Computed example of a mutant assay.
Amino acid sequence: MNIVLFYHSILSDWNHGNAHFLRGIVRELQQRGHQVQVFEPQDGWSLQNLLEGYGPEKLDELQHYYPGISTNFYTADTLNLDAVLHDADLVLVHEWNDHALVKRIGEHRSRSRYQLLFHDTHHRAVTERESMARYDLTHYDGVLAFGQVIRDLYLQQGWTTRAWTWHEAADTSVFYPHPRPATYDGDLIWIGNWGDEERTAELHEFLINPVKELGLRAKIYGVRYPEHALKSLQDAGIEYGGWLPNYKAAEEFARYRVTVHVPRRPYVEALPGIPTIRPFEALACGIPLISSPWDDAEHLFTPGQDFLVARTGTEMKQCLHTVLTDEARAQQLAAHGLETIRRSHTCAHRVDELERICQELGLKVKALKKAAIAES
């Protein structure tokens, strides 16, 4: 198939957690013989922050992990949809795009033959409902939602007439177990952005306080940490590493003995069944994971076997002590979680799902795929 993707960014993952999944999907589609083009705004905030803070050499480094990764920059004034979409079979529009662009592409679809899907990978359908309701999806063929509850909301609100659940997953070409050193750099690693005060209390209860009280050697990576957060890390003896390129996470996981997952409050309170990308990343890398509470309503994992669940800060300390003192239990958790990812939650699995959705929409995926492979 000829597939066109409108992303916020595929080059930058600065405060852009979806970049991992989006990159993995592009690579998997290309490996199957599909022709893929990515378009992103020339002035996208994620890429601008990356370039201003770390320089263009980081884009060269990205090529080492994703050889040949590329994008097409556009501005609203110069984007020629007739030229961009003239031979497209499938178009995906990610929900971090401007309302005007989403509507414009939909209007173009009304005069064309390709299939057009809106891709939602965020909690804004619940937390910023008015903004999401302003997306004009009139001419879209459906919505890909990264959780059943989001899918149902689009249908209940009448924002679309067709929607599918399409969870995120791990790109196992980058996220996989790396060799562990003879001596670990520390006990615990956490990779995540502080965010918009959506989990401040939770980060203290399930991460900062347990590390401090257990006297663990810990390191945290992420961006948008306010002064009070940095002070809390310092008081707890936690090293702060700043921004970490997403593609280097697997290498860092290998240098530590355990990690934790602390979901943001909207996912815990209003969006059951959506783990976000972080557990997929950790489990794919074979590091033991302990999570603060979230409702695995869609049974993606087996809590207690893929990872431990700590319902309170006290339980988090107990779980950390178990993993750090019982090597057999730690290895058992890591192996079970890794197997679950490989069996059900890779980008290859999600492309399988996407291809089935395309067939449901009337696209001749297999025939087009074979033709593309034969021509390559």
Rank of each mutant, 00 (worst) to 15 (best):
D87P: 04
E57T: 13
R342G: 00
R199C: 05
V4G: 07
H86S: 13
L188P: 10
Y135M: 01
L155R: 09
H119D: 10
T276L: 09
V323L: 13
G55P: 08
V260L: 14
N80L: 03
E40M: 02
I191H: 10
D82R: 05
E327W: 01
L101I: 01
M132F: 14
E52K: 14
E251P: 01
G215A: 11
V102T: 13
R257Q: 15
Y154E: 08
D306M: 06
L361P: 03
H178Y: 10
S70I: 04
F146M: 09
M1A: 13
S173E: 14
G273W: 12
F280H: 14
R278K: 15
V4E: 14
I287M: 05
L50G: 06
D295P: 00
T322P: 00
L283Y: 03
T71V: 11
E213P: 04
H178Q: 15
A374C: 10
P41Y: 07
E281D: 14
L144G: 01
T165W: 00
E128Q: 15
L244F: 06
Y135S: 00
L153Q: 12
T172Q: 01
E52Q: 15
K364A: 14
T312S: 14
V36W: 07
V260W: 02
R264C: 01
P181R: 13
I287N: 00
E52S: 14
E28I: 01
G142N: 10
P67Q: 04
Y221K: 07
I10K: 04
A250D: 04
L300I: 10
A218I: 08
N18T: 13
Y54Q: 07
L244R: 09
A372R: 11
Q331M: 10
A236H: 13
L188E: 06
E281L: 14
D235R: 14
V323S: 10
L155T: 11
Y221W: 15
H299I: 00
N209L: 05
W243G: 05
E128V: 03
Y65L: 00
Y240W: 15
V351L: 04
A133I: 03
H99L: 12
R27D: 03
Y176A: 02
V126A: 11
L116A: 03
D89K: 05
D60L: 11
L230G: 02
E205K: 08
P303F: 05
L144F: 06
I238K: 10
S232W: 11
V268A: 07
S70E: 12
E107R: 11
L5R: 13
I238N: 06
I373A: 08
L101C: 00
D98Q: 02
G286I: 01
D196M: 12
H20Q: 12
F307C: 05
P303S: 07
I277G: 01
Q31R: 13
P272Q: 08
L116M: 07
L338V: 02
Y66E: 05
T314R: 09
S344N: 06
R109L: 09
N18L: 08
R23K: 11
L79K: 03
L90Q: 04
L320H: 06
F206H: 13
T127P: 08
G273F: 10
D87G: 02
H167Y: 15
R350A: 02
Q148L: 03
I290N: 03
F206E: 11
H16R: 09
R151W: 10
D196H: 14
H94S: 05
A249V: 15
V260T: 15
L320M: 05
E130N: 12
L92T: 06
L90W: 06
S110I: 04
